[in-house]
Every structure is written in structure tokens, then in C-alpha cells.
């Protein structure tokens, strides 16, 4: 099997971020539409989901 299962193909090494400071995408949406977007990815049955989210302890 190809090594590419862990990546997107070889290509060239991208330049390291030259600005070396934090950047963000433009904030164009209102908070209401962002909250709606959040709502759309949430599991619908919060109670059940939270109750069932049980892991074994790790390190």
C-alpha cells in the first residue's frame, strides 16, 4: 500500500509562514448565523449523546 495513505501526495515543501504572526479569516457573518451553523453540526439528542460518551481512562 502506498505511503500516501497518510498524506496528500508529495508536492513541494510549502514556504513556512513568512509573517510569523497570527492571522484569521475575515469575520463577515453575524453571530446569529454562526450560532445557527453550530446548531447544525450538533448531535440532535444531546441528553443521550452526553450520557453515552464514556471512555476508558487514559494517561
Amino acid at each position: 500500500m502506498s505511503n500516501q495513505i497518510f498524506g496528500k501526495g508529495p508536492g513541494d515543501k510549502p514556504e513556512t509562514s513568512e509573517t510569523m504572526k497570527a492571522f484569521s479569516k475575515p469575520n463577515t457573518k453575524g453571530i446569529d448565523s454562526i450560532l445557527d451553523e453550530i446548531d447544525s453540526v450538533l448531535e440532535k439528542n444531546a441528553e443521550e449523546f452526553v450520557k453515552g460518551f464514556i471512555q476508558k481512562g487514559g494517561q
Binding site: 509562514s17 492571522f23 484569521s24 479569516k25 463577515t28 457573518k29 454562526i34 451553523e37
Partner: peptide, 11 residues
Amino acid sequence: ILENSGLVKSL
């Protein structure tokens, strides 16, 4: 979602 909405910064 927050990143795409400009509500968090990246490096």
C-alpha cells in the same frame, strides 16, 4: 466553524 468565521486565529 469559528475558524472559518474569523473567530479564531491560526499560525
